[in-house]
Amino acid sequence: MPLHRGFITLLLLLLPISAQAFDLEDLQRQLAATPSVAGRFEQQRELADLDSSLTSQGTFIFERGKRVVWQLETPVEERIELTPEAITDGSGKAAPPGGEQVAQLFLQLLEGDWQALESRFTLKLSGDRDAWQVALTPKEAALRERIADITLRGDRTIDNLDMRTPDGDRLEVRLFDQRPLNDS
């Protein structure tokens, strides 16, 4: 009887651990395991008041904690580099006013920097380590006017970023052919 009770207690103790088996910290650790990635992207922007969408393709390099290089190939060639300090395009010009904040957010999303994101978004993780999904909804009203929600999906790396605005625009970025860079 005492043994039996101990067993149930043990089970009860284990239960919450298994339920939370995969949390944001785990995910962050999992993503950090591949510090640098290179691959291809396809970006599709749907604009609510237009029937068509803006589609672009290219390659990217992601160096964790350092920078993201976004190399557009079609329909126009352009190299965009995002660092925590600045966003620069091919001609070395700084971003248009207000662009830095968007760039910072973009970088935090690709990094899976939950601590930084949590100050502005409510995060919800679902799925398991091989097919996870993080849904982000803005906390402050001012930000909700610009972003309705963001969804990140992936496995060992982030594979898909989906951002909607309240006026119905949508930005979807698909990352594929990802391979770790082992220069670091």
């Binding site: 970006q43 672009s56 557009l72 352009e78 965009i80 995002l82 968007v102």
Partner: peptide
């Protein structure tokens, strides 16, 4: 380039 930048709001 602006239209297709990931950080722009075209």
């Amino acid at each position: 380039r602006q239209l297709f930048s990931p950080t722009a709001r075209p």
